[in-house]
Design a protein around this nucleic acid. Sequence first.
RNA 1: GGGCGGUUAGCUCAGCUGGUUAGAGCGCCUGCCUUACAAGCAGGAGGCCGCAGGUUCGAGUCCUGCACUGCCCACCA
Length: 920
Amino acid sequence: MPHELPKAYEPGAIEGWWAEYWKQEKLFHVATPPAGVVRNAFSLLLPPPNVTGRLHMGHMLNQTEMDIIMRWHRMKGDLALWLPGTDHAGIATQMMVERQLRREGKSREQLGREAFIERVWDWKRQYGGAILEQMERLGASVDWDRLYFTLDDHLSRAVREVFVRLHEQGLVYRGKYIVNWCPDCGTAISDLEVKHEDVPGKLYEIRYPVVGSKEFITVATTRPETMLGDTAVAVNAKDERYTHLHGKKVILPLMNREIPIITDELANPEFGTGAVKVTPAHDSNDFQAGLRHNLPQIDVMDERAHMNQNAGRYAGLDRVQARERVVADLEAQGFLVAIKEYTIVLGKCDRSGTIVEPRLSAQWFVKVEPLAKRTIEVVEKGYIRFTPENYRQIFLNWMYNIHDWCISRQLWWGHRIPAWRCGDCQEVMVARQAPEGCGKCGGARLEQDKDVLDTWFSSALLPFTALGWPEASRDLEVFYPTSLLITGFDILFFWVARMIMMGCWFMMPPEKPVRSDTKPEGREEALRKSVPFREVYIHALVRDAERQKMSKTKGNVLDPLEVIKKYGTDATRFTLAAMAAPGTDIAFNPSRTEGYRNFANKIWNAARFLFLNRDRLGDAAGAPPPVSPTAKGIPGFDAQTLEDRWIVSRFNEAAGYMNEALETYRFHEAASRIYDFFWGELCDWYLELIKPRLAGEDGGDTSSAQVAYKNLVLLFEASLRLLHPVMPFITEEIWQVIYDGRLPLKSIALAHYPQADDRQIDLKAETQMAVLQDLIVSVRNLRAELKVEPKQKVPVQILASEPDIRMMIQGNHVALERLANVEGIEFVESSLAKLPGARHTARFDVHLVYERKIDVGAERKRLMKELERFNKAIASAESQLGNENFLAKAPPNVVEDLRKSLGEHQVLREKAQRKLEELQ
RNA sequence: GGGCGGUUAGCUCAGCUGGUUAGAGCGCCUGCCUUACAAGCAGGAGGCCGCAGGUUCGAGUCCUGCACUGCCCACCA
């Protein structure tokens, strides 16, 4: 063989090479078409991985799905843009570099802001490309020439532009509120970054002495240490138990401060004693109540959740120690009434796991209500479609209850908030560029806000900023709205929701007052075009083989690169695709991957078989001509034999099926269909059936072998194209060898995706082939049962009453002889069903002429079981066909099929019965 | 407290809009190195489709309830 392909497929040997080839040749780069040129655009934004990221199974699933869709669209001839980038990932990156500093015995404070940021950039330059290299290794067909980083200049400019515009519109505001504060990260975080957890805890009941009386009022709290900052006790106005205390004051124990008793809805008479302590600086409900009653806000903790000066002698203690001391002191002084077991809800920081502290602090917020309103509108109107559909409602439910979004972070790494404070008059100015001087007092001592923006603020803008906004770019015209978003549900709210809010806000032309001459469709059309993507496909989580969530602590994390190393990228991709049924989690089981590695090997060896024949038949056989982008089916396939007509029909059916499955994101169906076609149909049957022709053993001349070979190459090449989106590497490798240096295109990735051609669908051939397969399997089965020596050829007798079938068998006797190891076929007229060495179907009886006695017991058992099955089927069919309602209401084809099936089962039952009698 | 999903062969999972005898991979049993492939080939065994009702001519598929299980959301001390 000139092409010394190794006997077993070695993915490691070729994958890296092709990945690099694709990138070097810029095969996936999309040049923006000039104005006036219209091509069917398909655009998709890669959810930008964190620069600190390392590829995990979730990424790989996500990218496999995206790559399949992108390669498919590209091959269909669409202008397919897959836009890659990485995210600066504020907290994650900052923490990583801080850890590094700590190992060097330094801190970020020692370095100072500028030096620290420079240090992070250094880190990014050195290591930030790792995840991209891993993506490249997966074969991700992204447009590498459009790679962005969320801190790039133009993206930063866009972020400032958005911030300023929102501020001008009153949708960004600054204020002092209770926010979620992570003492570990030292920053505010958004509601979404807090994970709630039910844990066993305690409910402390504390009594506060009422001023000017011997009475006490008892309050319940889960956080006794915050009492140091109490500024009132609330009771419900309707609660008659406390009517006599309205307007009175209590002494706050330990602090000896007088605080008022107020009446407020905050106090629920049903709960505990009905009285509640009010700590406006440490609880958001209390904060609201505090505003209603003009209560002072006493913050008793610092940014690390240690008690501060306001906590008196508890200052310096952390919150846990403080609680112990406060409780002990309360008990010692007789204020502690009871400690009860109680399940409390703890909010933990998503990133650090630290218990979140509700903290009073000045932050920037987005007023989301107007944005949410429009988001709800586009989703309700179906301008953005969700797959699976149930995510639509989940999304909307969340959207209906959305709260304002805290967007400032007390970090250094990120987009700095474009706001400046005047050192003289304290005026705060929001501007695109640093102002020259204070707009109010003219002072020159301006200082920029120290905070940066939530990372999700900038990623929310990517669908339009990555395409050039705020410039009115040609890219935006061509590629916005993007066609699709593929992502996991874990960032549905973090990212998807915010992209829709921002996209529909900034890509929607300002609404003008309605005039009589403006058509209402105008707004709808604009709204439709404002969405960041027209469809969202949400995929599930990748779990381990035991359905457990993969986590480092459990140690069950499967590294995709390890799996790839062992089985190859194609096999790993195929596993994920095959498991990716929409809406269900994926239990990743490497045994499946092993199976798909075997599939790759199967294809490899089928290719070796192809090349073996090419070498034998000589170059005259040739390579297939390039397939036109508008072609359907397999042009030029010269179907002369039953197996030809059958395989080309099956191919077209598979092509139709693949396209339909990919259209609806049913990756698993696409995967299993191509698997079945390639292995179960092409390799198991077609290749075996054409071997005699290829070898010239069919009695034909060499031209018959050449036709067979040409058909095989055409079929094989087309099948590679069909498979390519799922298994890009092996298909590219074999495809290139098929063309052997005379490539019509640089890559199979640019070739045409097969489309079904109805004219190549041949149902008659499929039916005949099914009978032939049945016949061959029956003989094989008999051989096994009669324990015929594997190499011994055996004569068979066949009863086939339909002339069509008889002719078909005669015409394909070589197939039967070869595949079932038969020598001598005799057609008979009388039924063979009762003979022991016989099998029967509705279409034929076949008898193996062989001496060996069969195992009567086993045969009877088998027949009894078969009979039972037939009887059941017949009974059910008869009862249905006897039912007038069924005949009247069921569709005609169902009735017809059932009649046919009944007839066949009756024949089968009769044959089985006769044979059983014979065995008695 | 609210919402969503899962329960199908020994294991891991398919089964789209209800329609002939419920499928696959792995594992298991039997026999084969048949010159593309032992990572293979051929044959085979294995299923009250979680439980109980209901709708329908017809239910693994739709509805209700229950059981078990996983997840998301939630400012009541």
